[in-house]
Amino acid sequence: MAGKKVALACTVCGSRNYTITENAQRAERLEVRKFCKHCGKHTLHKETR
């Protein structure tokens, strides 16, 4: 069975560029620096639910 998908949203423009599988063991929301194709640079992306 496939896990539930959650999106990573750019903190600058709000675009949801990436999806990951949800991890029930992670207590805090994931924050990673990823490339945003809308901003054209690496920005902080936060997990949305």
Rank of each mutant, 00 (worst) to 15 (best):
M1K: 10
A2N: 12
A2D: 14
K4D: 11
K4A: 08
K5T: 10
V6S: 01
V6F: 06
A7Y: 08
A7C: 03
L8W: 00
L8Q: 05
L8A: 06
A9M: 11
C10V: 09
T11I: 11
T11F: 00
T11R: 10
V12L: 15
V12A: 14
C13Q: 14
C13N: 13
S15A: 15
N17R: 15
N17I: 12
N17S: 14
T19Y: 13
T19R: 14
I20D: 08
T21L: 13
T21G: 06
A24P: 07
Q25H: 12
Q25S: 15
A27S: 09
A27F: 04
A27P: 02
E28F: 04
R29S: 02
L30Q: 07
E31Q: 12
E31W: 02
E31A: 13
K34G: 01
F35H: 06
C36N: 03
C36K: 04
C36H: 05
C36F: 06
K37E: 10
K37F: 12
K37Y: 14
H38E: 11
H38Q: 09
G40H: 07
G40L: 09
L44K: 13
K46D: 00
K46P: 00
E47G: 07
E47F: 03
T48C: 13
T48A: 08
T48I: 12
